[in-house]
Design a protein around this nucleic acid. Structure first.
Lengths: 195, 195
DNA sequence: AAAAAGAATGAACAATCATTCATAATTATA
DNA sequence: TATAATTATGAATGATTGTTCATTCTTTTT
């Protein structure tokens, strides 16, 4: 087994365990068990428990950013781009539910216990929305009065919260795609310049 | 000093400490120190650490619900009601920042470690939005195609995420009131029936 | 095949804290 | 004022668990 395989096995196990129990309640021994590895082995690949979490942020968000950027960049119309972002974000959450839970839960309180760590990857991700909105405003498609800083957060928050509750009770009235297109529609009507 | 005073002193201290450190990193001794009380005294008023957190949820959210309900109920127009909710929510976060942090951070991961606890108070709060949207749809002010379940979450999520980042860096371009009215405007344009 | 290097193991360690409880201080009652 | 009842204290306890490291297993090199 290649070294990198074990690194990844631990990461994948940690995503699962963190998602189930949360960072603090998760035990190193839980992760080790899930990864089918001895407790001590984890410390051959990571410095400590935090380091595992940070690695999840860095590596896994990195992959998502690339994916979503590629897809939105294929479009030129900011309206379409916004819709694609919404749908991709939601699909990602559906397909990588454990990862999504870790990101959503721990991201929010990460600044509590990792004072020094700034999650630049995450900022980069949200800024995809920011740039789409900016582009739309430059072209006169979106209203100028809308503050881009507010709109991007609002858009992301709307998607994220909807996704969060969808995770908690997936036996829902609507599919994740329906939710995504509803939200992007609301935002498009909400921010586009009147004809 | 009346008994209830000490109960409240501990709650207020806990809000402060939980906001600063997060639930897990907060020590009972930190709370005791902040409340100017012995460690053991806390256990005369609360069963355990979780119990303090749950009490914060129950008691403090309860107060907020009453406030916001009273204010929105003074209005009859769903459009106005939505705006009032947005502004009140944001103002609350500005004025009770510590409380807001605790609610936002811990609420999200509370289901990870408190399996049995369902935060009915919180659901009640978000349902204020839900009912406003429903009302608007009944009157034909808001589009029927908008799914109320999605819209309420999207609205709440937008407010909450914007507030969250505002808390993290309050040296912002915009005031919390500006953000609130922007978001309610986006949503109103987004969901209202075309003339 | 023997020796060296590299990986993996998991029991043991040490530090951390939530919680308890014997004792003390305060307040109420007789 | 004496006694009982209530409230508060904080040192000690005990359970938990992240991390270490002596040892074993595996692979590579000579």
């Amino acid at each position: 087994m290649r070294v990198s395989d074990k690194h990844d096995k631990i990461i994948q196990a940690a995503i699962k365990v963190f998602a189930q129990k949360g960072f603090f309640s998760a035990r190193i021994s839980d992760i080790a068990k899930e990864a089918k590895v001895a407790d001590g082995t984890i410390y051959l690949y990571f410095n400590n428990k935090y380091d595992i979490l940070i690695s999840i942020f860095e590596e896994e968000i990195g992959k998502i950013i690339v994916e979503v950027k590629n897809l939105t960049d294929k479009e030129d119309d900011p309206r379409k781009m916004l819709e694609i972002f919404a749908i991709q974000h939601m699909k990602m959450i559906r397909d990588k539910r454990n990862l999504a839970e870790v990101l959503q839960m721990e991201l929010r309180q990460s600044n509590k216990f990792m004072k020094e760590y700034r999650n630049t990857k995450f900022i980069e991700y949200v800024d995809i929305v920011s740039r789409i909105i900016h582009k739309g405003q430059e072209r006169g498609i979106f209203r100028k009065e809308v503050m881009p800083g507010v709109a991007k957060r609002a858009m992301f928050g709307a998607l994220d919260e909807t996704a969060r509750l969808w995770i908690l009770s997936p036996d829902n009235q609507y599919t994740i795609e329906e939710a995504a297109s509803q939200i992007s529609e609301i935002f498009l009507y909400g921010i586009e310049a009147k004809a």
